[in-house]
Nucleic acid binder design. Structure first.
Lengths: 219, 219
DNA sequence: CCAAAAGTGTTCCGTCTACACCCATGG
DNA sequence: CCATGGGTGTAGACGGAACACTTTTGG
């Protein structure tokens, strides 16, 4: 195979995953301590370099799988970050991806093994390089999109109560929502269907459990 | 300097510029015939490889400057494209940038010299690689953003009439807008200021000319 | 029996939409 | 004098925001 472009520079390209979860009523980010030089020990997003033979999306899926053991997760590109000195080590272009997971589906073993921590997004420490900027852009993106797309489900178990769903919206938007208005809005969405079952854990009275019906949404 | 990441792959990284202009009542894209192999002669966006010592944004500015001789132009990242075979030549990651220019500011000489053509975005030919996808994402982005940000000005001369402005909105949104409602909305924007002057070219009666006041907008 | 969460409608206000006629002037 | 584009206001529809009480039951 001819190398058509050989006179041009080749750069390192990496993926950084912004993994968000919902826990204790707050939006939380999965971060760890950097395992390589430079910056070893600093708080950092989890990431890896892109291989020759994988697409950016595939690479992001792989990184997330290595990290969480989870597949078929919501994953969306946030953007490419390319300041010359953004990484203290070398010139690296990084493509940030946002992923939304349900913290309960995520194996605690794996979390400890990778030494990862859930930290509230509004109380983040300084992260490695430009990672804080990536996170803040990812959260802005999530806020914008949640008005149009049903994304909150990715942060919840398969079955959830309307109150749980409301807490997720509140955590993402950063303000309280009126219960009656919220429920009115949700009832208009045909893809949120009431299951027969009742959750008796969260209240004495018990709350109806709902489910996101993907088929209904895709219509 | 130590190469911390030397065991990892390095990839070609390029910029592709989606240059949009407004002409003859339509939104138009600047495209040319590809000047290198593979795909020589195919319709293509204008782009170039990212150098070692320039950021992605700087690289996009440079590409646009080489192409149009224009600086300080609206330029916004659309996203990174990284399918393994997206470029028929080699594995190349490309970062797409949207730019909006006023076609009258753009030198006709330069256009001919680079053999570039303005083509209506709703009548585009098949472009090289995944360039059609980039354009369609860029146009979607523009449509979404125009509702919140005053971007239309970038497509017009410094002074413009309200009818011209309306035509730009219509071209971007793809549908007609009621004249009175449009003017009502515009009057609420303090950063669109009436200049004293009157344009007598577009109508017999003459139309008031307006201007975008950036200082006012930045407040 | 009471604390704690679930569930439920109505009114108001601001925003968006539809819609038709007069004005000024160059040719 | 008339064709052409510039300029203006009002009424109805719609969607979002504010707001308070009843229900159920585990402890």
């Amino acid at each position: 195979m001819v190398d058509y472009y050989k006179e041009h520079a080749r750069l390192y390209v990496s993926i950084d995953c912004i993994v968000l979860g919902f826990d204790e009523g707050k939006l939380k980010l999965l971060i760890g301590h950097r395992k390589m030089d430079p910056g070893r020990g600093e708080w950092s997003l989890y990431g890896d370099f892109v291989n020759e033979d994988e697409s950016l999306d595939d690479s992001a899926s792989r990184v997330l799988y290595e990290l969480t053991g989870m597949k078929d997760i919501y994953l969306k590109q946030v953007g490419a970050y390319g300041e010359v000195n953004r990484d203290p080590g070398e010139r690296v272009i990084s493509v940030a991806y946002l992923s939304l997971i349900n913290v309960n589906d995520y194996d605690e073993e794996l979390r400890r093994q990778f030494d990862l921590h859930w930290v509230a997004v509004d109380q983040l420490p300084k992260l490695y390089g430009d990672h804080n900027e990536m996170v803040s852009n990812a959260v802005s993106m999530l806020r914008r999109r949640i008005a149009y797309e049903p994304l909150s489900f990715n942060l919840l178990p398969e079955m959830f109560t309307l109150t749980q769903l409301q807490r997720v919206y509140e955590a993402i938007l950063g303000h309280e929502i009126d219960k009656r208005n919220f429920r009115k809005r949700i009832k208009q969405m045909p893809f949120i269907e009431k299951t027969g079952s009742i959750d008796r854990k969260t209240s004495k009275r018990g709350a109806a459990q709902y489910r996101f019906n993907k088929e209904m949404y895709d219509l």
